[in-house]
């Protein structure tokens, strides 16, 4: 009951925010809608019983990536960027006329229904295994798996992060005046 309410709310938040990311005209709003989508995905993780992942999602995406993105938006022109750019999103020409849109829409509908049918098949095939696991905390299991089975990936990702840190600091260094 609770889980279903959480699921509906998270799914709505995720999908609506993702669609708004596409249709908003302001790059800053896109970042804020991305925040909604990320929080929605964190809620979906919760309904799937992945509490560690939900917390990590909040910590890394909201606390780190999103703030860095907004920083980048502000450092590269800020709010007036979309309005004053000579080739803004508003000036992108429509890629077709009524005929192409009708044709494209029908094709998308057909493709979508085929895709849904395929997904339904997959879901049906596994429906006999789909009884819920009991929700339990995953953090101990994940912690053990990270340092036993997946220790190589763990180490490699640490090297990757170190490389990203040094690389970003090197690339974004201000240009020296000669």
């Amino acid at each position: 009951m609770f889980l279903q309410v959480v699921f509906i709310l998270s799914a709505l938040l995720t999908v609506v925010s993702a669609v708004m990311v596409v249709f908003t005209r302001h790059i800053m709003y896109a970042a804020v809608y991305l925040l909604g989508s990320l929080i929605g995905v964190a809620g979906l993780y919760l309904t799937l019983g992945a509490d560690t992942l939900a917390a990590t999602q909040l910590l890394v995406y909201v606390g780190g990536i999103l703030i860095i993105m907004i920083f980048a938006i502000m450092l590269t022109g800020g709010q007036d960027f979309m309005k004053n750019s000579r080739k803004s999103f508003l000036q992108v020409p429509f890629m077709g006329n009524v005929k192409t849109y009708v044709f494209g829409g029908l094709a998308a509908l057909v493709m979508g229904s085929i895709g849904t049918k395929l997904i339904m098949n997959v879901a049906d095939r596994f429906s006999e295994h789909s009884e819920m696991l009991s929700y339990q905390s995953t953090i101990e299991v994940i912690g053990e798996a990270l340092v036993t089975d997946h220790v190589l990936v763990f180490e490699i990702s640490s090297v990757l992060l170190l490389g990203a840190l040094i690389g970003a600091a090197t690339i974004a260094r201000p240009i020296k005046k000669q």
């Binding site: 860095i68 993105m69 990270l146 990702s157 690389g167």
Partner: peptide
Amino acid sequence: LFIIVVAAAEAVVGLA
């Protein structure tokens, strides 16, 4: 988890 790690690295380097 590793996807999130890679996403963080990608975002930082990309934005730099």
